[in-house]
């Protein structure tokens, strides 16, 4: 594989005075790689992904994204974040703006693209996620699945070097999960570098190159997808898999 896009080295983090949420976590995501991060609730996987674009500060270790150290004061964080796409559990579209404006805001204000160019790019991406007809609507008029697809398009409009997914399907009604996963699978197959926190093991099997299993703030297992599902080494991952794959 090519150059690493994300390097997480010995990261520790805690919230306030509570115990550590991340304990000595190290993980590398190479260009073009799709890495799925899974694990039980409270294992720190969501926190970890939020640290990757410095939405959450870390207390120890370092994180390098696209060759830039997030802890380096000289790094222009907004510029860097603009190139790291993030998709949230609750979509977080801006409800007071039309779908089209949701896609254009950061393109024009952060990347400085002319409005016409931003709109062209936005419409192309809405087309890609199958929502061309919804450009003039407000997010509140869309279903959850549609909103999440718009959120993915909004992140893609920034031409990100990597896409982060933070439980992108966990807040959706069951029948809407697949339309969002379809978009994510298509994205993975197009060669996008992705770090995906999810419980959707079907997605992991289908497109992930590696699966990382987290437990109690630590990485318990980091293995190629096939090896992870067929022969997980850690006992905790075995238990986890046997529970969620039973049904």
């Amino acid at each position: 594989m090519s150059e690493p896009v994300i390097q997480i080295e010995h990261v520790t983090k805690s919230y306030g005075t509570g115990g550590p949420v991340l304990r000595d976590v190290s993980l590398t995501v190479a260009g073009g790689e799709v890495v799925v991060v899974c694990g039980p609730s409270g294992s720190g996987k969501s926190t970890l992904i939020k640290c990757v674009n410095a939405l959450e500060p870390i207390q120890g270790g370092r994180i390098v994204v696209g060759g830039q150290d997030l802890g380096d004061r000289r790094v222009d964080l907004p510029r860097l974040r603009a190139r790291v796409g993030m998709v949230f559990q609750h979509f977080e579209l801006f409800p007071h703006m039309r779908v089209l404006d949701n896609l254009c805001l950061a393109q024009t204000k952060v990347l400085g693209r002319p409005r016409a160019e931003a709109e062209t790019r936005a419409m192309a991406l809405l087309d890609r996620v199958g929502l061309h007809a919804f450009a003039e609507k407000h997010p509140g008029q869309l279903s959850g699945g549609q909103q999440q697809r718009v959120a993915i398009a909004r992140a893609l409009a920034m031409d990100p070097m990597v896409m982060l997914f933070d439980e992108a399907t966990s807040a959706l009604d069951p029948e809407m999960v697949s339309e969002v996963l379809d978009v994510m699978v298509e994205l993975a197959r197009s060669g996008m570098t992705m770090m995906v926190v999810t419980h959707e093991m079907g997605f992991a099997r289908k497109v992930a190159h590696r699966v990382v299993f987290m437990d109690q703030g630590q990485i318990a297992e980091d293995a190629p997808t096939q090896a992870f599902f067929e022969a997980p080494r850690s006992e905790r991952a075995q238990q986890f898999l046997s529970k969620i794959l039973t049904y």
Binding site: L80, R81, F94, A106, V110
Partner: peptide, 21 residues
Amino acid sequence: PRGQAAAATALGLTYRQSMRY
């Protein structure tokens, strides 16, 4: 919701821009 500011930040908007827009 806090996620709104997080989403704006994640898109690269500065604090002022995320407040304003």
